[in-house]
């Protein structure tokens, strides 16, 4: 049991991040905080990909004369990391759009607290 927890500690951290993100979106009333929760949620998934692709004792996929190229375990699979670069860019774009929308909400309603906002929208 202890081993199970110890060996997978990275995944536990990712789960924690995921739950924190969800908590932010669920419970926080401020729209900015909700947005922050969303970013944490998204990033936890990105870290999941990165973590899953990591191998102990392996190196970047650049041919190293000291390591045999026949042994797969010697080199990392670069694909997930590069994919996550794209995902990060996508995430940043979404946060940008989110902030722009938050600004325009504040201009229209002079508040970012959700209960007040819903009240003023009626």
């Amino acid at each position: 049991m202890v081993d199970f927890i110890h060996d997978n500690y990275a995944y536990w951290a990712i789960m924690l991040l995921l739950v924190i993100g969800l908590y932010g979106m669920l419970m926080k009333k401020n729209l900015i905080k909700k947005l922050i929760g969303m970013v944490i949620f998204q990033n936890s998934i990105i870290i999941l990909f990165v973590t899953a692709a990591y191998k102990w004792g392996a190196t970047v996929p650049v041919v190293d004369p000291g390591r045999s190229t026949d042994e797969i375990a010697n080199y990392l699979n670069p694909l997930p990391h590069t994919l996550m670069l794209t995902a990060i860019v996508v995430g940043v774009a979404i946060v940008g759009v989110g902030f722009a929308i938050v600004i325009s909400i504040y201009r229209n309603f002079q508040t970012l607290e959700e209960p007040e906002l819903l009240e003023r929208m009626k």
């Binding site: 979106m25 949620f41 998934i45 989110g98 909400i105």
Partner: peptide, 23 residues
Amino acid sequence: PVASFRYLILGTIGASLYLLGVG
């Protein structure tokens, strides 16, 4: 903008779930 913000949060959750599944 409020509608759009709600769409953004929920939509991103949906997309993230999808990404998790793909992972």
